[in-house]
């Protein structure tokens, strides 16, 4: 592996950078997922009645918006090799805080701030347990998943807060001026761009990848591993709780079970989008595309009148297929590289 530039195998490797940009883009997992979305939409438009309507797209985005929002920071956490499974419960907890404080007479905007700050604190709690105490994030966030779901359900009991101001409720699901896309699309795009810049174009983002590849190596290279992880958990808590406020307004309903099970949908979308669950590899665009592919798949199958059991099977099969393909091509890649270096060492 320590081949120098004159080594023919390494030289060939570096030559690939000389390929035209379009060829490099074509070979990426994200490209394949986006191609799958386009193909799916073409097929659905041609074969599924009523698919080619603006309403299809607006409802597709509305239904998947909470997942698309929450997967953005979680993608960065997964790239560091950690995971955040508490996001669904943070959504529910935020919904409960938002609803209860509004019902107690707190102005709507202040109630939203309270809920979002609460989510940020849960993120901080997760982050401190993972970084300062040094516990595995899987265990920590499964713990907070149960803990804050329990608190959310406990706070509201069987009660539901539903009497939010009508103009705010209408705004939450209103279309962006002159298009069928709901207003939340703007929020998703802004967040994706902000986090994509953070991940792919800043030293912080390169640190995220370096931690995922090897936390020790990253630390020795000057990456502040714990600080990076802590920031990411806080961001995840903030985005999940903001999503909780949005979700509450979208369905005019603050109940403790809001967002139940969403964490797995978030992770499914991210992994489908080519982000390695072991960390170190993946892009935000890929994760978003994974979420959109699942949303489009759901919409298509629902409109085609296919039952939700089958939809679940198709989503699961697509995920396993994508993970298997990535893993198999990864192991072929490793074997070839192993042979190449063995050959060059022998020569």
């Amino acid at each position: 592996m320590s081949a120098v530039m004159t080594d023919p195998a390494a030289a060939a490797k570096y030559q690939r950078y000389g390929r035209p940009l379009w060829r490099r883009l074509l070979l990426r997992t994200e490209t394949a997922i986006i191609a799958a979305i386009v193909l799916l939409i073409i097929i659905a438009t041609a074969t599924v009645p009523y698919f080619a309507q603006p309403y299809t797209y607006s409802t597709m985005i509305l239904n998947s918006a909470p997942i698309l929002l929450m997967l953005i920071p979680v993608t960065l956490i997964i790239i560091t090799g950690e995971i955040d499974l508490s996001v669904g419960s943070v959504l529910g907890f935020s919904s409960a805080i938002f609803g209860l404080s509004y019902a107690a007479g707190v102005p709507l905007s202040l109630a939203a701030v309270l809920a979002i700050v609460g989510g940020g604190l849960i993120g901080l709690f997760n982050g401190v347990l993972v970084t300062v105490v040094g516990l595995p994030s899987l265990a920590v966030t499964i713990g907070t998943l149960a803990l804050f779901r329990g608190i959310a359900v406990g706070l509201l009991g069987t009660r539901a807060v539903t009497d939010f101001p009508q103009e705010v409720l209408s705004f939450a699901i209103s279309p962006v001026f002159g298009s069928p896309l709901p207003i939340v699309t703007v929020a998703i795009l802004v967040l994706v761009v902000a986090f994509a810049v953070l991940l792919h174009f800043t030293p912080f983002g390169r640190g995220v990848f370096a931690i995922g590849l090897s936390p020790e190596a990253a630390a020795f290279s000057g990456v502040r591993v714990n600080r990076t992880k802590l920031i990411l958990f806080v961001l995840s808590g903030l985005v999940a709780s903001a999503t909780g406020v949005y979700y509450t307004l979208q369905y005019s309903n603050a109940i403790g079970t809001n967002g139940f099970g969403f964490e797995l949908q978030v992770v499914t979308a991210i992994v489908l989008g080519g982000v390695s669950i072991w960390g170190g590899r993946g892009t935000l665009l890929g994760a978003l595309a994974g979420g959109v592919l699942i949303a489009a798949l759901n919409k298509t199958l629902q409109l085609a009148g296919i039952g939700s059991d089958t939809i679940s099977i198709v989503t699961g099969a697509a995920l396993i297929f994508s993970v298997v393909v990535a893993s198999v091509s990864g192991s072929i890649s490793r074997r070839r590289r192993g042979k190449a270096s063995a050959a060059s060492a022998g020569a």
């Binding site: 690939r16 091509s329 990864g330």
Partner: peptide, 14 residues
């Protein structure tokens, strides 16, 4: 880095 086999991955993706 882009290995030789990223082409394989591309094919697999298709």
């Amino acid at each position: 880095t882009f290995s030789k086999t990223s082409r394989k991955r591309g094919v697999a993706a298709v």
